[in-house]
């Protein structure tokens, strides 16, 4: 087990084109892990404060869009004392190559982390090539 200390990650504002908000919350680009196994590609995105029903995943023309709308804490009667981070929505896009089986994409949200599993289509799976000895 690693004893590495967790480093603070800077929140980066999302840059890609998106429609404007009526309510002035910023959009951040979520930090992601993307890994590939034999059968699937998995995208894990940090979206703290986002409820599962406020996640929007869209795949169009091989562009995968992840969007999460944050539910900010109710601070109506409170005044800020320290402020080290801002709440905001999340937005990020990726271009996928065509080997993803678009009908079998699944997603789940847990503890503010979105996990999207993109299964590979059959013919894109790696084949093990036997080396024959002559």
């Amino acid at each position: 087990m690693s004893q590495k200390d967790m480093q603070p990650l800077e929140k980066k504002e999302a840059q890609a084109f998106r429609p404007e908000e009526t309510r002035g919350l910023p959009y951040y680009s979520p930090h992601v892990d993307i890994y590939e196994t034999e059968n699937a590609l998995t995208i894990v995105a940090d979206m703290p404060g986002v409820e599962s029903q406020n996640v929007n995943i869209d795949l169009k023309d091989n562009v995968l869009t992840l969007q999460g709308r944050v539910t900010p804490p109710d601070t109506a009667d409170l005044s800020p004392v320290y402020r080290e981070y801002r709440e905001g929505h999340f937005y990020r896009q990726f271009i996928l190559s065509e080997i993803v089986d678009q009908d079998r994409i699944t997603a789940q949200m847990s503890k503010g982390v979105l996990t999207v599993t993109l299964p590979k289509v059959e013919h894109a799976r790696p084949r093990k090539i036997e080396v024959k000895s002559a």
Partner: peptide, 23 residues
Amino acid sequence: ERKPDDGGESANYHRRERGSGTF
């Protein structure tokens, strides 16, 4: 501690931005 969200032994990473470790 934020535990690494591992894809298992067979996973190969394209990106790893989220980080893990103790705090």
